[in-house]
């Protein structure tokens, strides 16, 4: 993380100013460590720069909490964040989404051990349910919202850091059910998957957008959006974007994320 900050600072210092003299900061939710994020985003930004003539610098945040604080303070010109972050960011700093992965949807799955005999969320009343982290969108926030609002059960959440942990906790019986996402479930060992059963799937929401701060001039935002969409048309560009992961880049707008806003997920959100 620190390395990321250092690199960012150095890059910022080394970066010549863009046509309008300004270097645009890009913040990325730290799902992975800085060097990995940098490896994913720097090539994309390079393409953007050559396409638009603008200058971009990645600004790393050490933790998700830090990221949340920073985007709330509007410290990124552009930011890649999860849908719920967008909701908050929109509330606090007015960020608006410009592009997103139109080929995916986010939703959480609730799994239970096949041998436990639990087949529906109603049976989980009063039980322990494992989640990766409090603020994981699909696996935790949306799941907990639905369990509470739709199934009206009370349960004890356990935050076990990773999706892998969630599944194993369920398999070993530490938790009677666990919240994850399809992608991570499919990545588990076959034996694990064979012994888990999905007992509920949340509604789907659009995935992570790249959002822009309102103070960024509209035409600049458009240039960026166009350039990114254009990247999605070439094999090479798609290749780069798939690392984000973005499988089918598409233009985004706030209306896509309004339903999410209405879920009242802040009840379940853990403030830093």
């Amino acid at each position: 993380m620190f390395l990321g900050v250092l690199i960012a600072v150095l890059l910022m210092a080394a970066q010549p100013a863009s046509a309008d003299g300004r270097v645009y900061t890009v913040g990325i939710v730290p799902q992975f460590e800085a060097s990995r994020l940098h490896g994913i985003w720097r090539p994309i930004l390079d393409r953007l720069e050559s396409e638009t003539g603008l200058q971009f610098v990645i600004r790393g945040s050490s933790t998700i909490s830090q990221f949340e604080i920073e985007f709330a303070a509007g410290q990124f010109d552009f930011a890649y964040m999860n849908p719920y972050h967008l909701v908050i960011a929109n509330d606090s700093a007015g960020y608006l989404p410009i592009v997103y992965d139109g080929g995916r949807e986010l939703s959480g799955v609730l799994v239970a051990s096949r041998s436990s005999g639990i087949t529906s969320p109603e049976q989980l009343d009063g039980k322990v349910i494992a989640f990766p982290a409090p603020n994981a969108l699909g696996a935790s926030l949306m799941m907990r919202q639905e369990l509470t609002d739709t199934f009206k059960i009370s349960f004890t959440p356990r935050y076990v850091k990773t999706h892998d942990s969630v599944y194993i906790n369920v398999l070993v019986g530490e938790a009677q059910a666990g919240g994850g996402v399809q992608a991570t479930l499919r990545r588990q060992k076959q034996q694990y998957q064979d012994n888990l059963v999905v007992i509920h799937k949340t509604q789907s929401v659009p995935p992570h957008p790249l959002a822009a701060l309102p103070s960024v001039p509209q035409d600049i935002q458009e240039q960026v959006r166009t350039a990114l969409l254009k990247m999605g048309e070439t094999d090479q560009g798609r290749e780069l974007l798939s690392k984000v992961p973005i499988s089918a880049i598409a233009p985004a707008d706030l209306s896509l994320y309004i339903p999410l806003k209405n879920l009242g997920l802040d009840r379940f959100y853990q403030k830093p």
């Binding site: 494992a130 076990v160 990773t162 942990s165 599944y167 194993i168």
Partner: peptide, 10 residues
Amino acid sequence: LARDIGSFFA
């Protein structure tokens, strides 16, 4: 302690 059995297993 963190119940991060995934990391434990890893």
